[in-house]
Design a protein around this nucleic acid. Sequence first.
DNA 1: CGTCAGTTTGACACGAATCAAAGTGAGTGG
DNA 2: CCACTCACTTTGATTCGTGTCAAACTGACG
Lengths: 230, 230
Amino acid sequence: MDTFRPFEPQELRFVSSFKTGELVAETGTTLIQEGSHSAHLYTLLSGWAFRYKMLSDGRRQILNYLLPGDLLGLQGSIIGEMEHSVEALSPLVLCVFQRDRLNSLFENQPGLGFDITWLAAQEERMLDEHLLSLGRRTAMERAAYLLAFLYHRAASVGLAAGRGRHIPITQQHVADTLGLSIVHTNKTLRKLADRSLIRWLDRSCEVLDLEGLMAIAEWDGPPERRRPLI
Amino acid sequence: MDTFRPFEPQELRFVSSFKTGELVAETGTTLIQEGSHSAHLYTLLSGWAFRYKMLSDGRRQILNYLLPGDLLGLQGSIIGEMEHSVEALSPLVLCVFQRDRLNSLFENQPGLGFDITWLAAQEERMLDEHLLSLGRRTAMERAAYLLAFLYHRAASVGLAAGRGRHIPITQQHVADTLGLSIVHTNKTLRKLADRSLIRWLDRSCEVLDLEGLMAIAEWDGPPERRRPLI
DNA sequence: CGTCAGTTTGACACGAATCAAAGTGAGTGG
DNA sequence: CCACTCACTTTGATTCGTGTCAAACTGACG
């Protein structure tokens, strides 16, 4: 089963029998609320978003970031209840599906069913890496890893060149992703900037030295796509 | 799509066209090595195992635990290369499948394809919760969460009553799961034991007060299984 | 011109890591 | 049957990384 292909948003987008509509959202919009039983499944067509969970006293943990091609709300579709919230980091466009069509999708479009599983496996791979980061990397290593990771993700969907190459997050987002306080996050990012590895702009980050970041984090980047063995 | 059913190992086990054989392993056996391109996909039929990643200087992070009904090696089957290792925590029995049959499984058994995606969504849910733990919970909260979590998982596959109700891990495993040093882990577990929330045995843990652990961690347990809406 | 979100910096406190050492119990070999 | 080893657990002393508190700075916006 090395013969996968990456999930193409357009693919689901034009399977008219599954598509319900398109949705545009502003920066900061809460797209999905923890505990909700959303009736919909979404594909992100453009923009950035993030998933997070909160504890009752306000502690927030960002779980992962969403870029074009990613699914939102699969958990709700499959398990029934969303266990995390989703918020827009930039203006974005979503493609909306009826979640109750999901089982017929598996029946009628096994290729798409496999693509969904492929996406879920990718997500699991990213979460594994984040866990390694939170559990065993120092603050500096975590920050370097996160920025290298986000740069890679942006590059993989063509956002790395030209205009959009800045990662649209605040230091508060970084802190809540890395499990650090915002003060310590600021001091850590400052060190990375002083070493010319990154540049911090108003509410975004520019990666100047990807290799340097990856070396600090001891991270090799996402695995090479395997060529089909047969 | 609220009408899911939990994945039954027996289900895959007796789909003879996919099954390759059965495999028995001792405690401590490395079942899958990070970086390998395993030709097989497994279902755990009995026993406990855990997934982990390591950094080159020996820092280890345990990602999650595997119990009967869980899949091993799906990542390898779908992405091509394993990005984590798997080790047995107890004697265990695996059911082995050829991974190259996976796409034909999606074609011919869409119901099983959906079950695999369901399992992947469950794994993602657990990893999300672990991330919240590592990022935003204190040492005490993390320990309480982990033990409550493992108790729940064991109970959900019928391991909670009688003989097998002890969780077969060492304090080193707990430390590597929670991202703590083994010394601090010991002191934290000691406090839980002094409060009669757990009892620590030779190389295992007995949960005495599940509610108490869940209250400390501020964790509600896995979501209720949704009844079908229609 | 004031407000507000975001960034920056310094002083201090605290939680967790590290260092060191001893206790326990199972297994092993003499 | 008794030393011996080895993995695991336990405890105390000290160090260090990160959190908390406090305050100032910046730029966008109304």
